[in-house]
Design a protein around this nucleic acid. Sequence first.
DNA 1: AATTCCAGAGAACAGTTGTTAACTGCATGG
DNA 2: CCATGCAGTTAACAACTGTTCTCTGGAATT
Lengths: 208, 208
Amino acid sequence: MSHTLGVRQAQKLRTRQALLDAALALLEEQSLSSLGLREVTRAVGVAPTAFYRHFRSIADLGVALVEEALGSLHPMIRTTVSPAADSEERIARAVDLIAGHVHEHAAHVRFIARERHGGVQPVREAIREQLARFARELKEELAKDEQAAGWSEEDLLMLAHLYVDQMLITASLFLEALDGAASAREQVIRLARRQLRLISIGRRHWLD
Amino acid sequence: MSHTLGVRQAQKLRTRQALLDAALALLEEQSLSSLGLREVTRAVGVAPTAFYRHFRSIADLGVALVEEALGSLHPMIRTTVSPAADSEERIARAVDLIAGHVHEHAAHVRFIARERHGGVQPVREAIREQLARFARELKEELAKDEQAAGWSEEDLLMLAHLYVDQMLITASLFLEALDGAASAREQVIRLARRQLRLISIGRRHWLD
DNA sequence: AATTCCAGAGAACAGTTGTTAACTGCATGG
DNA sequence: CCATGCAGTTAACAACTGTTCTCTGGAATT
């Protein structure tokens, strides 16, 4: 039986989440390394000192945001590689899935894209670690495919990294096209499908 | 005849360059959106107000840095696609070229990788524009290759974008491995070559 | 019912920031 | 040679930053 949280602990978690949400919103138009502690608490409507009850520093909050953002991305990976009739259908589904995710979790995706190479080392490291984990998981999925027969472990991991990076590139293109014309989003879809198709072809002839 | 610059104008340019250099150095461990105007002038040894003689704002300086950084990258693109004996030799040469460039212009590469999705809109736009220009130029180079026979313009541009993104991914991997063990750099080389090889194979069978 | 604990408030701190205005000294063009 | 232009200086501003210490109200524990 799970013990329901006390009133006290529940309120603490609510404040913590409010801080994370406010920070994520503020990060839409700046980087983590310029985000101020007071700025965040002000947005939540709480005293600056309350921040320290939840995070040691802004960098610490950033690491927590990485978990949150890539946690929501986690189930997507698996679905992306899920089997479908032919390869073309699979590609179309994967790109649509990315588009949907970006539409629904725009702020999270923006945060990851921005801070992956951003100015805060612990956050960069957290993102790198999570993406490497994704690549390893994806590798295991790819290994199950009949196409993977004869592939070395290293080659499979190489392909997984290629897919992960390609996914992020596509996601950030969708992000840029989010509040633009629908035709811009169509263009991204066309481009992403073609690139995945080319990778798919390379994969098919890898062992020739 | 080129008119040699007056003492006055030459000094101005020297200060401007010092501001750019100082900013680039400071950006190794933070993002542009957290870089302070006073921070930069202090590093140069000049009064804060002198900054305004050269740039309207930090964002403005950022845009200037984009030109500087991607200007040095410009000649590389062309060499990367330069013809070589077989495809394998070509790939090895391209990866080595990237490694060399990162080693020699680490700060510039870091700046581009960091600010491509960073928190300063005009800088993001400047980078996007320059990279799109690279992709168009690369497309023209690719079109000359005999392998490009039968390829549509759109497909060629798609491939060019794939190469440009792949180049940046590889560059930022080299960046992370810069002050680590030599084996880490070797690992990046192996990965980058394989990924380029896969793309190369996909390209060869694109029209099947 | 009495005691402990702790999330959050409040006030104060020494530094920092961007931007303004008025200035100075010196290379430049007439 | 003298007048102008302009890169860089000085001083001051209001607003902001992260961090410290002390305090308080109410939930949690006994």
